[in-house]
Design a binder for these strands. Structure first.
Lengths: 219, 219
DNA sequence: ACCTGAACACCGTTCAAGT
DNA sequence: ACCTGAACACCGTTCAAGT
């Protein structure tokens, strides 16, 4: 959190008597901006305006906008629930983690491509998350050489599902094109939160398959 | 394909004697540009330059850049292999489709967010793809009310996996942060194409789970 | 060291003018 | 109808000048 300066800082146009910005304060404001205004709303200019500062001032604390996104991502990962890996069976822990992970990125879909590609190095909360997940899978008897693949597979499904939450409800409407099977399938689909239903079905299937795979391994 | 004009068109600065551009020609060039220069390389200015035209000329044929991306996406979907749904068991067809789908979007990761969110309406190849997939699942005995969820679940995994192919090899390196389980898991991971290994494991698990679910349904 | 303000090289998009 | 070229309202980023 950006500790509010005891005295109102910065008047003139030189160096302020006390720093106005901190890297953490920039990150916190970026998270808020992303939540309120979405992907396109997070610009360096908008971020600076909300911090009461000229855009160029940000560059004293971050190197690039990608830097800001990485910090925001680590902050989002801080909120993902890994608690199950401490005391639940690995599959139940994985289910809890996957749900929490999906929900977090459904709130921040712009971060999905960032998360899929950004090295974990120097992102402390992200490393802590993976550490708990890997420890839980190892404790659950998964052979070490498969653990990373299991994590990546579940994560790929989670991030794809997070993107899917952004799809409009009528995404599968074929318009005036002929598509009887597609029409039948969408017509038979129950109403409600369809993205959540697809996620639940897929996660159940994925976990059932992983259980079967795990049962075939020693340990 | 943009049929090359029989005579060199366009000299002066008024209306050309023959149209220089077509919507299909713009799409074809956009696909090439995206493959050669990647996401950031696909700008309206670069597209216009390669077509020998001023950027504003594009707007006589497409309404927005998002329009171009939608057309590119439908063109990419044209290349996805749905052949299995005609004569293979549904699970084998789904596996073939998923592999082809993942490979196509691994080549065009910038389209992943587009694909996840864009309505299928007026995208003929995309509608044709979903039609074959749904028909195959219905023919395989899936209850109609589950078909769309199965499609979306597999698709979410595929698109997440396509993004994962863009991750650097050392994405899980925790740097100097303490993370023994994460280190053990990454150290035990065999070399080679790790993204493909994770995709194969996840797809196997997902399909095994879907088979079990399908076996519990009538048909 | 850390801010401001001007500047740079871009974006996507609009629109009057030309044929 | 379909092009050009100028223009608009943006981007992210750099940098000299100020304290």
């Amino acid at each position: 959190m950006p500790a509010p300066p005891a005295q109102p800082a910065r008047r003139g146009r030189g160096r302020p008597t006390r720093p106005v910005l901190t890297a953490d304060g920039i990150t916190a404001e970026a998270v808020r901006l992303l939540e309120e205004r979405g992907q396109d709303g997070l610009t360096m200019a908008a971020l600076a305006r909300r911090l009461g500062v000229a855009p160029s001032a940000l560059y004293n604390h971050v190197a690039t906008k990608a830097d800001v996104l990485r910090a925001v991502q680590d902050d989002v990962n801080r909120g993902i629930d890994c608690s199950g890996f401490a005391d639940l069976p690995w599959d139940e822990a994985l289910a809890r983690w996957a749900h929490s992970y999906r929900d977090a990125y459904a709130r921040h879909p712009a971060l999905v491509p960032v998360m899929a590609v950004t090295p974990v190095d120097s992102a402390p909360h992200t490393v802590a998350m993976y550490e708990r997940v890997c420890a839980g899978l190892l404790a659950g008897g998964w052979p070490p050489h498969l653990v990373a693949d299991v994590v990546v597979a579940v994560e790929s499904f989670v991030l794809g599902s997070a993107l899917d939450t952004q799809a409009p409800a009528d995404i599968f409407d074929p318009g005036r094109l002929p598509a009887p099977a597609l029409r039948a399938a969408t017509a038979a689909r129950p109403g409600g939160d369809t993205a959540r239903a697809a996620f639940a079905l897929g996660l159940d299937a994925l976990l059932a398959g992983l259980r079967a795979l795990r049962a075939g391994a020693p340990g």
